[in-house]
Simulated assay, not measured.
Amino acid sequence: MGLSNPPVVLIVEDEPDIAEMYDIWLGNDYDSRFAANGAQALSHLDETVDVVLLDRRMPGMSGDEVLAEIRSRDVDCRVAMVSAVDPDVDIIEMGLDAYVVKPPTKDGLRDTIASLIERAPLDADVQEYYSLAARRNALEINNSRDELAELEAYQNLLSKLESHRERVAHKL
């Protein structure tokens, strides 16, 4: 991301009205680009993209599949999954940086993007710490801690989060 250029946000959304609304919300603060499906998203993805707003449920290639491909390409961008699907333990193993439940608010979406951009220059351990924390938070918003406590995947997430916290404490 250049200092004089606005950050690039790739909006991957199969509903044109929603994509247009996000673009209006982002205003002149961001360079918005659009993809109506997973294949288009991957063709628009390059080193200039700072943040991807990724719809989880799309025809053809799902947001989960697009996210996996983004991570396999080792593209240095942050990814916020934006979905009407409440997060479940399946998000624990995803390489997402934030999870936003639809419908987002304008301020909530803008705050998520701003936070992801602020985190971009941080080292990999700190990035992973924030990503793990985002997954934990998304799960805890939609599930009781008692229910989650019974799940091995959630316990593993908490262990990873604590391990990363110890490694990055001096960097935060």
Rank of each mutant, 00 (worst) to 15 (best):
E162H: 13
V100N: 05
E128D: 09
G2H: 10
I91E: 02
V66P: 01
I11K: 01
N5V: 14
M94P: 09
Y130W: 12
L45K: 01
A84S: 07
M61R: 13
L161Q: 12
V101T: 13
L54D: 02
D86T: 12
L148Y: 06
L172R: 01
V100G: 03
V85G: 00
D55E: 08
G60W: 05
G63R: 00
G95E: 08
I113P: 01
R71F: 06
E140C: 03
L3Q: 15
D74E: 10
E69T: 13
D14E: 11
V101P: 01
R110N: 14
L132W: 04
R33W: 00
E166P: 06
D90N: 10
L96A: 08
D107C: 08
A80V: 06
Y130C: 07
L67A: 04
K102A: 09
H44R: 12
L10I: 02
Q40L: 12
E147K: 13
A19R: 01
P87I: 09
L3M: 15
Y130V: 01
L158V: 09
E152D: 15
A120S: 10
R167E: 07
A80I: 08
E118L: 09
L45R: 00
W25E: 10
S163W: 11
I70G: 00
L122D: 07
E13M: 04
P6R: 12
D55I: 03
S159A: 15
D90C: 08
R136E: 02
N156M: 14
V101C: 11
D107E: 15
E20L: 12
A36K: 07
G38D: 08
A149K: 15
G2A: 15
V9Y: 00
S159K: 13
P103H: 09
D125S: 10
D146T: 07
